[in-house]
Design a protein around this nucleic acid. Sequence first.
DNA 1: GCCAACGTTGGC
DNA 2: GCCAACGTTGGC
Length: 151
Amino acid sequence: MKYWLMKNEPEDYSIDDLKNDKTEPWDGIRNYQVRNMIRDDMKKGDHAFFYHSNCETPGIYGLMEICKESYPDHTAFNKKAKHYDKKSNPEAPTWLMVDVKFKRKLKKVISLTELKSHKKLSNMKVVQRGNRLSITEVSKQDWLYILSLEK
DNA sequence: GCCAACGTTGGC
DNA sequence: GCCAACGTTGGC
């Protein structure tokens, strides 16, 4: 079982949207590193943090679970979709997505500022300068440590 | 809204 | 295959 941190802009889709929808395809991944990760390493039942990026308080807002392993991201073929990719061929899809299931919101938001203030978490990708991957793996140790900050 | 960091594109 | 130009991400 692995643990992940998945970023999204709340303006686009937030933890509250996921709470309403229960499950949702995590589409729009257009980065090869991230695609390879979800294709090769992400399994049904893995746990993930829902991270809000590009907003007033970037940070971890909730917990979710991977409920469907990677499959073609059809939004890549939709000219009207935000992340349409004209080079992607439906016969051999370049881009993949997984489905996520809402678990719960955190009792309190663990902001990026707070994450950065903990030396123990300095190995996390999300606190490192210049990190632009929208999905990163979180160690079990860090996962548990972050959950302990919720209290 | 600015801009640093980094990925991608494409000319050569 | 190099690398400059360009686009995107995302914190601030």
